[in-house]
Design a protein around this nucleic acid. Structure first.
Lengths: 348, 348
DNA sequence: CTGAAAGCGCTAACAT
DNA sequence: ATGTTAGCGCTTTCAG
């Protein structure tokens, strides 16, 4: 069978040099289009290189240049569509700038997260982007000791060391909550994420803050917790539904949670938004195809990934333009049909 | 500001050797726990290494070992939840085996796909996994010329060169179609993917085949095309709905398409499954939270990713156990509530 | 047990 | 315009 042998030694510039009767440095020059080599020899060399299927060794090159043209991206899990969108944005501009990206999941396990960062350090990545880390501050220290530029996405960094791009969670939650209040709801609830993420804290804070100032709102507003997935959202919604004073409007930590809530409400035989309004956060691609289409706060996920990579690229360029440390996006309120005025019957 | 300087030179075994008053080769040995070094010196060396934050340079090591402990993964886009799940499985076992993964998206652009493969080759990845390529056979040639082991996922390879893991699309489509027929439907339709993927061809073939043998089924069955996304599915479903002889059951190329179809049906004021039954293919995590929960054919996405990486690892090990070339999974029919018996009114 | 020396494939002076 | 030499940080003989 003609399967390629893994260990087969790739051809090197020396091999080409021999064939072309020149020194290996001339080959090196020719292959990088240096003007210092005679057009004819250059052509000859390139020809041999092409026909022999030569490919520079990025590893050898990196050893001398001290640059790998490589970045590391840490996510909790790529199976979360939010992270996937962000990574997609990162990858896009990384590719445009000639960087390759290492992807590693932490599975929200601090040990594993430290592990992948160490592995990135050994691989001498030029930069690191950490997305939605659930790991705390001890880790922050490690990162800053690495002397590798790091950009955080949606991750509060108490240290104030690194660069970050994030969404304004508080403002976003306010917008959603005001929208709900504006519709006439008075019994609101929040379904959070139980892992104590800063983003959850902030969204809840925005929610509570608006509730505090609304005389008509029932206080304290109910708060229950999911785990950021649809299953968690469904289960949390179940708790809300089981109480005798169920809310008429629910704001969910994210769209996945909201989808679970939607599902639980339907299973319970109630309608959205007639019986209960539901709002999410993120605006995942799938959210406009929910039933009913989900009202949510759109985060520019792709754009945030892109910006993070652009910052990194700046940091890595010969003369960095000193990007802003904290880059905060404000999301857009997307009103669809999962939120509506509370029905009279329910309200009384 | 104390931001780490990108260019700062990492410390090397030579630095440690100097501090420990030994040669750099002794340091190299000690750090890899060679028994050839005296416990005391070894301890001393490790101490210095730890306290100084030393990290081996994987690039220098790779240069001599001719192994990068790195694999490259090509996907069309990571924003497709199917790919994300697969990559998640790959990453998981890669991590367990000590490999890092490069992720690159082709955006279904052949030129870009060739580009990322070349970049993988230059980076001297030990192996490559190609997921759901939309690129044809010319590319097949490139890959086999690379002398790097390649494993394909859900990608027919006419050449028969490389290893592959895939789902049995034909059998899966048959199961879905038989389920629909068994419910009593006679007017079925298929919403395909217009990009001519082999998987689309196979699913359609399985569908058609079952229809052919069913005397009660209306023939030919309607076939319209989406693009594999929910938006495409919604649009294609719209076409079906516009005709005066709309089907009572629709089988969709994948779950994303099915979600779009669901949405279009609801927009049209019809109910699922009372008016129209809808079935998908994949069983994405979100599919059980659709309204109604989606009947579909479950692919072990994560498992397929895992298996692909396991095969690669075998191929890369010192004494490969010669894995099977073609590894075909058969999916599970997951019956939820988006399919049901056709209503009498509609049937007449 | 430890050190000296060679070499992995490339780039970058430094000569010529 | 080209060749020679050195060196990137590590592993690996080969001597002691």
């Amino acid at each position: 069978m003609s399967f390629p042998v893994p260990g087969r030694k790739p051809i090197s510039i020396k091999d080409i040099a021999r064939q072309a009767n020149v020194s290996h440095s001339t080959v090196s020059r020719a292959l990088r289009n240096s003007p210092l080599v005679h057009p004819d020899t250059a052509e000859k060399i390139r020809e041999i290189a092409t026909s022999s299927g030569y490919r520079v060794s990025a590893v050898a090159r990196s050893l001398v240049s001290r640059r790998t043209q490589t970045i590391g991206v840490v996510v909790t899990t790529i199976a979360d569509p939010f992270n996937a969108e962000v990574v997609s944005g990162i990858e896009d501009v990384a590719n445009a700038f000639g960087y390759s990206v290492f992807l590693a999941s932490s599975q929200s396990d601090p040990v594993r997260e430290l592990g992948v960062v160490h592995s990135f350090a050994e691989r001498r990545v030029d930069g690191i982007i950490v997305n939605s880390s659930r790991v705390g501050s001890l880790y922050q220290e490690l990162l800053s000791s690495l002397s590798i530029p790091v950009v955080f996405i949606n991750n509060h960094n108490p240290g104030g060391f690194a660069y970050s791009v994030s969404i304004d969670d508080v403002a976003g939650a306010r917008q959603i909550t005001e929208h709900l209040l504006g519709l006439g709801h008075t019994r609101l609830a929040y379904i959070g994420d139980r892992f104590g993420l800063q983003s959850n804290l902030d969204r809840m804070a925005g929610f509570q803050d608006v509730i505090e100032r609304a005389p008509q709102a029932r206080r304290p507003a109910r708060v229950v917790y999911g785990d950021g997935t649809s299953a968690g959202g469904a289960q949390a919604m179940g708790e809300l539904l089981a109480s005798n004073q169920a809310p008429t409007a629910v704001f969910c930590y994210n769209d996945r949670t909201a989808q679970g809530a939607l599902s639980a409400i339907h299973e319970h035989g109630l309608r959205v938004p007639e019986d209960i309004s539901v709002a999410g956060f993120d605006d995942l691609p799938v959210s406009s195809f929910c039933h009913p289409p989900l009202t949510t706060l759109r985060q520019p996920m792709n754009g945030m990934g892109r910006q993070a990579m652009e910052i990194l690229e700046q940091l890595l360029s010969r003369n960095p333009k000193a990007p802003d440390m904290a880059n905060k996006f404000v999301g857009d309120l997307i009103i669809r049909r999962s939120t509506g005025v509370p029905s009279i019957g329910k309200q009384l």
